[in-house]
Amino acid sequence: MALLELEKVEKLFFSRDSMTTAIKNISCAIDKGEFVSVIGPSGCGKSTLLSLISGLIHPTSGTIKLDGKEIKKPTPETGYMLQQDYLFPWLTIEQNITLGLKTMGKLTEETRKHSLYLLNELGLGDRANHYPNELSGGMRQRAALVRMLTSDPKLLLLDEPFSALDYQTKLKLEDLVFSTIKQHRKTAILVTHDIGEAIAMSDRIILLSHRPAQVIRIFNIPDELRNELPFQARNHPAFNGWFQDVWKELESLEQQI
Protein backbone atom coordinates (compact mmCIF):
# COMPACT_ATOMS: atom_id res chain seq x y z
CA MET A 1 0.00 0.00 0.00
CA ALA A 2 1.19 3.48 -0.79
CA LEU A 3 2.36 5.54 2.16
CA LEU A 4 1.69 8.84 0.48
CA GLU A 5 -1.01 9.48 -2.08
CA LEU A 6 -1.50 12.69 -4.00
CA GLU A 7 -4.71 12.92 -5.93
CA LYS A 8 -5.31 15.70 -8.45
CA VAL A 9 -3.49 18.18 -6.22
CA GLU A 10 -3.74 21.77 -7.31
CA LYS A 11 -2.41 24.89 -5.65
CA LEU A 12 -3.17 28.49 -6.51
CA PHE A 13 -1.64 31.54 -4.92
CA PHE A 14 -3.70 34.68 -4.78
CA SER A 15 -2.67 38.28 -4.54
CA ARG A 16 -4.75 41.41 -5.05
CA ASP A 17 -4.10 41.73 -8.74
CA SER A 18 -3.05 38.28 -9.83
CA MET A 19 -3.49 34.63 -9.25
CA THR A 20 -0.82 32.09 -9.99
CA THR A 21 -1.25 28.41 -10.46
CA ALA A 22 1.78 26.89 -8.79
CA ILE A 23 0.80 23.26 -9.07
CA LYS A 24 -1.64 21.76 -11.49
CA ASN A 25 -3.19 18.35 -11.30
CA ILE A 26 -0.46 16.29 -9.70
CA SER A 27 -1.32 12.73 -8.85
CA CYS A 28 1.17 10.19 -7.64
CA ALA A 29 1.74 7.57 -5.00
CA ILE A 30 4.85 6.84 -3.02
CA ASP A 31 5.39 3.48 -1.40
CA LYS A 32 6.78 2.78 2.01
CA GLY A 33 10.57 2.71 1.99
CA GLU A 34 10.85 4.45 -1.35
CA PHE A 35 13.27 7.28 -2.03
CA VAL A 36 11.80 9.67 -4.57
CA SER A 37 13.44 12.77 -6.00
CA VAL A 38 11.60 15.70 -7.48
CA ILE A 39 13.43 17.76 -10.05
CA GLY A 40 12.37 20.48 -12.42
CA PRO A 41 13.24 23.93 -13.73
CA SER A 42 14.02 26.44 -10.98
CA GLY A 43 10.99 28.15 -9.51
CA CYS A 44 8.64 25.51 -10.84
CA GLY A 45 7.00 24.81 -7.50
CA LYS A 46 9.06 21.92 -6.15
CA SER A 47 9.28 23.42 -2.70
CA THR A 48 5.59 24.31 -2.79
CA LEU A 49 4.87 20.64 -3.35
CA LEU A 50 6.88 19.73 -0.24
CA SER A 51 5.14 22.40 1.82
CA LEU A 52 1.83 20.92 0.72
CA ILE A 53 2.86 17.43 1.72
CA SER A 54 4.14 18.68 5.07
CA GLY A 55 0.78 20.28 5.77
CA LEU A 56 2.22 23.78 6.23
CA ILE A 57 0.01 24.96 3.36
CA HIS A 58 -3.15 23.43 1.98
CA PRO A 59 -4.00 22.40 -1.57
CA THR A 60 -6.62 24.49 -3.36
CA SER A 61 -8.17 21.29 -4.60
CA GLY A 62 -7.34 17.60 -4.50
CA THR A 63 -6.25 15.53 -1.55
CA ILE A 64 -2.98 14.44 0.00
CA LYS A 65 -3.15 11.34 2.13
CA LEU A 66 -0.49 9.99 4.43
CA ASP A 67 -1.15 6.41 5.48
CA GLY A 68 -4.72 6.77 4.28
CA LYS A 69 -5.39 9.87 6.38
CA GLU A 70 -5.74 13.28 4.77
CA ILE A 71 -3.09 15.76 5.85
CA LYS A 72 -4.74 18.81 7.39
CA LYS A 73 -1.93 20.38 9.38
CA PRO A 74 1.75 19.68 10.06
CA THR A 75 2.17 16.43 11.93
CA PRO A 76 5.24 14.91 13.53
CA GLU A 77 4.75 11.99 11.16
CA THR A 78 6.55 13.95 8.48
CA GLY A 79 10.02 15.30 9.10
CA TYR A 80 11.27 18.35 7.27
CA MET A 81 14.85 19.16 6.37
CA LEU A 82 15.57 22.53 4.82
CA GLN A 83 18.27 24.05 2.64
CA GLN A 84 19.97 25.40 5.69
CA ASP A 85 20.11 23.63 9.01
CA TYR A 86 18.10 26.24 10.94
CA LEU A 87 19.46 24.92 14.21
CA PHE A 88 18.50 27.33 16.96
CA PRO A 89 21.68 29.23 17.80
CA TRP A 90 20.69 29.74 21.42
CA LEU A 91 20.35 26.01 22.12
CA THR A 92 23.06 23.38 22.41
CA ILE A 93 23.15 20.57 19.87
CA GLU A 94 21.50 18.25 22.36
CA GLN A 95 18.74 20.74 23.04
CA ASN A 96 18.34 21.28 19.32
CA ILE A 97 17.97 17.62 18.44
CA THR A 98 15.51 16.97 21.25
CA LEU A 99 13.44 20.02 20.31
CA GLY A 100 10.92 17.97 18.35
CA LEU A 101 10.39 15.53 21.19
CA LYS A 102 10.04 18.40 23.63
CA THR A 103 7.51 20.12 21.41
CA MET A 104 5.51 16.92 21.15
CA GLY A 105 5.74 16.37 24.90
CA LYS A 106 7.58 13.11 24.36
CA LEU A 107 10.93 13.98 25.88
CA THR A 108 11.73 11.25 28.37
CA GLU A 109 15.03 9.86 29.59
CA GLU A 110 14.60 7.05 27.07
CA THR A 111 13.92 9.21 24.04
CA ARG A 112 16.71 11.54 25.10
CA LYS A 113 19.14 8.64 25.21
CA HIS A 114 17.93 7.49 21.82
CA SER A 115 18.51 10.98 20.40
CA LEU A 116 22.03 11.01 21.74
CA TYR A 117 22.55 7.55 20.29
CA LEU A 118 21.50 8.84 16.86
CA LEU A 119 23.78 11.83 17.27
CA ASN A 120 26.60 9.45 18.01
CA GLU A 121 25.69 7.33 14.96
CA LEU A 122 26.17 10.37 12.76
CA GLY A 123 29.53 11.10 14.29
CA LEU A 124 28.57 14.05 16.47
CA GLY A 125 28.54 12.26 19.81
CA ASP A 126 31.16 14.57 21.28
CA ARG A 127 29.33 17.70 20.17
CA ALA A 128 26.16 17.36 22.26
CA ASN A 129 27.07 20.27 24.49
CA HIS A 130 28.39 22.52 21.76
CA TYR A 131 26.45 25.38 20.25
CA PRO A 132 25.64 25.39 16.52
CA ASN A 133 28.05 28.26 15.78
CA GLU A 134 30.92 26.05 16.94
CA LEU A 135 30.20 23.47 14.21
CA SER A 136 31.01 23.41 10.52
CA GLY A 137 28.30 23.55 7.84
CA GLY A 138 28.37 19.80 7.24
CA MET A 139 28.18 18.99 10.95
CA ARG A 140 25.28 21.37 11.38
CA GLN A 141 23.36 19.74 8.55
CA ARG A 142 24.04 16.35 10.13
CA ALA A 143 22.66 17.66 13.43
CA ALA A 144 19.58 18.84 11.52
CA LEU A 145 19.21 15.32 10.15
CA VAL A 146 19.35 13.92 13.68
CA ARG A 147 16.79 16.49 14.81
CA MET A 148 14.46 15.25 12.10
CA LEU A 149 15.00 11.57 12.93
CA THR A 150 14.52 11.83 16.71
CA SER A 151 10.78 12.32 16.39
CA ASP A 152 10.69 9.13 14.32
CA PRO A 153 8.70 10.40 11.33
CA LYS A 154 7.34 8.04 8.68
CA LEU A 155 8.05 10.36 5.82
CA LEU A 156 11.09 12.55 5.37
CA LEU A 157 10.87 15.69 3.27
CA LEU A 158 14.25 16.93 2.11
CA ASP A 159 14.16 20.39 0.57
CA GLU A 160 17.54 20.77 -1.18
CA PRO A 161 19.37 19.91 2.03
CA PHE A 162 22.79 19.72 0.36
CA SER A 163 22.65 22.80 -1.82
CA ALA A 164 24.28 25.15 0.66
CA LEU A 165 27.28 22.90 1.26
CA ASP A 166 30.62 22.69 -0.50
CA TYR A 167 31.00 19.87 -3.00
CA GLN A 168 33.09 17.52 -0.90
CA THR A 169 30.87 17.85 2.17
CA LYS A 170 27.85 17.40 -0.05
CA LEU A 171 29.10 14.10 -1.48
CA LYS A 172 29.94 12.75 1.96
CA LEU A 173 26.62 13.85 3.40
CA GLU A 174 24.69 12.31 0.52
CA ASP A 175 26.17 8.93 1.42
CA LEU A 176 25.46 9.44 5.10
CA VAL A 177 21.87 10.58 4.61
CA PHE A 178 21.26 7.79 2.10
CA SER A 179 22.56 5.05 4.35
CA THR A 180 20.86 6.48 7.44
CA ILE A 181 17.52 6.60 5.65
CA LYS A 182 17.92 3.06 4.33
CA GLN A 183 19.01 1.80 7.70
CA HIS A 184 15.98 3.28 9.45
CA ARG A 185 13.77 2.17 6.54
CA LYS A 186 12.32 5.59 6.03
CA THR A 187 10.40 6.90 3.08
CA ALA A 188 11.85 10.08 1.67
CA ILE A 189 11.12 12.77 -0.88
CA LEU A 190 14.08 14.84 -1.99
CA VAL A 191 13.68 18.11 -3.85
CA THR A 192 16.83 19.03 -5.71
CA HIS A 193 18.11 20.83 -8.78
CA ASP A 194 21.12 18.55 -9.03
CA ILE A 195 20.44 15.79 -11.58
CA GLY A 196 23.39 13.70 -10.45
CA GLU A 197 22.23 13.82 -6.84
CA ALA A 198 18.73 12.74 -7.86
CA ILE A 199 20.03 9.77 -9.86
CA ALA A 200 22.57 8.72 -7.27
CA MET A 201 20.18 8.79 -4.34
CA SER A 202 16.72 7.82 -5.50
CA ASP A 203 14.59 4.92 -6.64
CA ARG A 204 12.41 7.14 -8.77
CA ILE A 205 12.73 10.62 -10.18
CA ILE A 206 9.70 12.77 -10.80
CA LEU A 207 10.31 15.46 -13.40
CA LEU A 208 8.11 18.52 -13.07
CA SER A 209 7.33 21.07 -15.77
CA HIS A 210 7.53 24.84 -15.57
CA ARG A 211 5.00 26.66 -13.45
CA PRO A 212 2.28 25.49 -13.17
CA ALA A 213 4.08 22.34 -12.16
CA GLN A 214 2.83 19.11 -13.69
CA VAL A 215 4.40 15.69 -13.78
CA ILE A 216 6.19 15.41 -17.13
CA ARG A 217 7.89 12.13 -16.70
CA ILE A 218 8.84 9.59 -14.08
CA PHE A 219 12.22 7.87 -14.32
CA ASN A 220 12.60 4.51 -12.64
CA ILE A 221 16.22 4.08 -11.65
CA PRO A 222 17.49 0.52 -12.20
CA ASP A 223 18.53 -1.66 -9.28
CA GLU A 224 22.22 -1.57 -10.09
CA LEU A 225 22.28 2.19 -9.44
CA ARG A 226 19.78 2.56 -6.65
CA ASN A 227 21.31 -0.09 -4.43
CA GLU A 228 24.71 1.58 -4.48
CA LEU A 229 25.78 4.34 -2.13
CA PRO A 230 25.37 7.69 -3.92
CA PHE A 231 29.13 8.14 -4.28
CA GLN A 232 29.51 4.70 -5.87
CA ALA A 233 26.46 5.26 -8.03
CA ARG A 234 28.04 8.39 -9.43
CA ASN A 235 30.99 6.27 -10.58
CA HIS A 236 28.83 3.47 -11.99
CA PRO A 237 29.08 2.92 -15.79
CA ALA A 238 25.32 3.27 -16.15
CA PHE A 239 25.22 6.58 -14.34
CA ASN A 240 26.28 8.74 -17.25
CA GLY A 241 23.63 7.39 -19.59
CA TRP A 242 20.92 8.18 -17.09
CA PHE A 243 22.38 11.60 -16.49
CA GLN A 244 22.21 12.35 -20.21
CA ASP A 245 18.60 11.16 -20.43
CA VAL A 246 17.39 13.30 -17.56
CA TRP A 247 19.52 16.20 -18.72
CA LYS A 248 18.00 16.15 -22.20
CA GLU A 249 14.50 16.00 -20.85
CA LEU A 250 15.14 18.93 -18.52
CA GLU A 251 16.88 20.85 -21.29
CA SER A 252 13.94 20.43 -23.64
CA LEU A 253 11.74 21.89 -20.90
CA GLU A 254 14.02 24.89 -20.58
CA GLN A 255 13.76 25.51 -24.30
CA GLN A 256 9.99 25.61 -24.26
CA ILE A 257 9.98 29.07 -22.76
Partner: peptide, 29 residues
Protein backbone atom coordinates in the same frame (compact mmCIF):
# COMPACT_ATOMS: atom_id res chain seq x y z
CA UNK B 1 12.38 36.16 12.98
CA UNK B 2 13.27 33.93 10.04
CA UNK B 3 10.13 32.04 8.99
CA UNK B 4 12.14 28.87 8.52
CA UNK B 5 12.76 28.58 12.27
CA UNK B 6 8.99 28.64 12.71
CA UNK B 7 8.69 26.08 9.93
CA UNK B 8 11.05 23.78 11.83
CA UNK B 9 9.01 23.92 15.01
CA UNK B 10 5.67 23.71 13.19
CA UNK B 11 6.83 20.60 11.35
CA UNK B 12 6.92 18.98 14.79
CA UNK B 13 3.27 19.87 15.16
CA UNK B 14 3.80 22.95 17.35
CA UNK B 15 0.96 25.41 17.76
CA UNK B 16 1.20 29.18 17.88
CA UNK B 17 1.89 29.29 21.60
CA UNK B 18 4.76 26.81 21.36
CA UNK B 19 6.13 28.61 18.33
CA UNK B 20 6.12 31.86 20.29
CA UNK B 21 7.86 30.54 23.37
CA UNK B 22 10.38 28.25 21.70
CA UNK B 23 11.24 30.36 18.67
CA UNK B 24 9.91 33.89 18.40
CA UNK B 25 10.69 35.05 21.92
CA UNK B 26 14.18 33.58 22.37
CA UNK B 27 15.16 34.64 18.86
CA UNK B 28 14.25 38.21 19.76
CA UNK B 29 16.29 38.35 22.98
Amino acid sequence: VDDNYVKVIRSFGAGKKQAFFSVIFPASY
